[in-house]
Design a protein around this nucleic acid. Sequence first.
RNA 1: UGGGGAAUAGUGUAACGGCAGCACGACUGACUCUGGAUCAGUUAGUCUAGGUUCAAAUCCUAGUUCCCCAGCCA
Length: 576
Amino acid sequence: MTTTPPSPNNDRSDDRNQTTAPVDFIRQIINEDNRTGKHAGRVHTRFPPEPNGYLHIGHAKSICLNFGIAAEYGGLCNLRFDDTNPTKEEQEYIDSIKEDVRWLGFDWEDREFYASDYFEQLYRWAVQLIRAGKAFVCDLTADQIREHRGTLTEPGKESPHRNRTVEENLALFERMRQGEFPDGSRTLRAKIDMAHPNLNLRDPVMYRILHASHHRTGDRWCIYPMYDWTHGQSDSIEQITHSICTLEFENHRPLYDWFVRELGIFAPRQIEFARLNLTYTIMSKRKLLRLVQEGHVSGWNDPRMPTIGGLRRRGYTPAAIRAFCSRIGIAKTESTIDVQLLEYCVREDLNRVAPRAMAVLRPLRVVITNYPDDQVEQLDAINNPEDPEAGTRQVPFSKVLYIERDDFMEDPPKKFFRLAPGREVRLRYAYFITCQEVVKDPATGEIIELRCTYDPATRGGDAPDGRKVKATLHWVAASHAVEAEVRLYDHLFTQPDPDDVREGQDFTVHLNPASLEVLEHCQVEPGLAGKPPEYCCQFERLGYFCVDADSTPDRPVFNRTVTLKDTWAKIQKKGQ
RNA sequence: UGGGGAAUAGUGUAACGGCAGCACGACUGACUCUGGAUCAGUUAGUCUAGGUUCAAAUCCUAGUUCCCCAGCCA
């Protein structure tokens, strides 16, 4: 019996089948650029997170896109931290982001960059724009700037400081850098057009004064560049050919292009695509933070969270997430993916690689009355029917067993195939048994034990006389069972769109009170004892489970990643 | 009432003037020592109204709906 967990599956053979995967509009643009020789066939992308939080499945879409494109076109993809706001960013997030990207199966080698590494260059470029009369130091307060900006339908007013001389601007900007002015007292602004219909071009702020310590540059700077003044130039410095971002930056593209053009530097092309939305969950960092802070989940890596850390702890594999990202497609239409597609992807992967095991979540005691009292047999069980090379293992069988409570009904409805009084079923890899007697607690009427007989001729699970049974049940021998805690997870929210709320409510009203059910006294086959965290397996007939970090050698803890498709559950649901 | 985007089965996504296809979901059936997997099948779509054309999801015109933008956030 093999005890090593299936390592995160980094076999990419299934990731993006060129013969079937549609060519999305971004790859079409790249194909066209390559056809016209725009960058001499060079393709260079980047994944540019701000290190102000943890990555989620939406980031995975972007990661797979950027790294995936680079790989397909024989290009490169940089990991760049957009760390221009020291008040929100921390080293901890950098570390976590790097771990998540790596876990997803991508490697940026030495192409790890930080916008903060470009601060000096950005400063020199700002001076260049000032000299060209394209930027000025503005003394307006934040409120005044807002008042001068105008509205969506009305033009703004020019700042009274807009026409300072180059010399005055140069001197003031230098003094800003030297720390002579307090936070918020001055900004450096691009001089564009206060009447522009695109508000981003109404003399946008390039630098703000922030006497804050930066996680990488320490106290070297007290002026920090804004996103718009940083991103395009960072892309340009890194010779990024295609700068892929999400739809909300469409309005920023004219400014991106303006800066790069005014500076006369290499011009990458910004391309926007629709971010990922998933049913029954939320993706907003701010809202996820509330779930953590208000204690609705145990932390950022709670198995119910859509974070990479949460999915990982839940038992999702990198291959499953990559396959998902490949299947959802890339487009500009805002859309919400059905979470069932994600679940399909993880089942598809785990079905192939996860070893099978028998585990009883809600045990019902079964005594085989005609089985010898002290006998124990070792029966052969197949580790993975999808993978012959996974081999077999032995599972112990004895007189007293546990089966799933759901697998017995005293008064079974028509389509219930499992055990019932007088009915014969198969115990997987073991024997046919017949239920002879139901023992109840005289006080509560609860069924506490089944007394069954077995047919010794059916050892291994087949009847020599060829008779059939309609059901095969999983089971665990009571004498050898290991007790485990199992955590059953369901959707975090009860509504497909948690943000669909009435006036005055917020998404928390749709929190699913049953998103976590903890089962304390589960019985699992002995081979499952001592498996390391993240070990994934299938509990036969129940679902895919993985060992949680809370697990200890004498008390395993499992998380349910996803259930198996359950036809019986569906029949039951319909009957209601 | 400004500007920028987007509308194709329930959900996503192709088709780029020439047979509306694929996946997930749902529903049948076959098979099965997992009511799993697998296999076979069914279901269901071009936002609206005009126009151009032999031919329109695709081009044109008008409209409708949805998303983004008024941070010294990214």
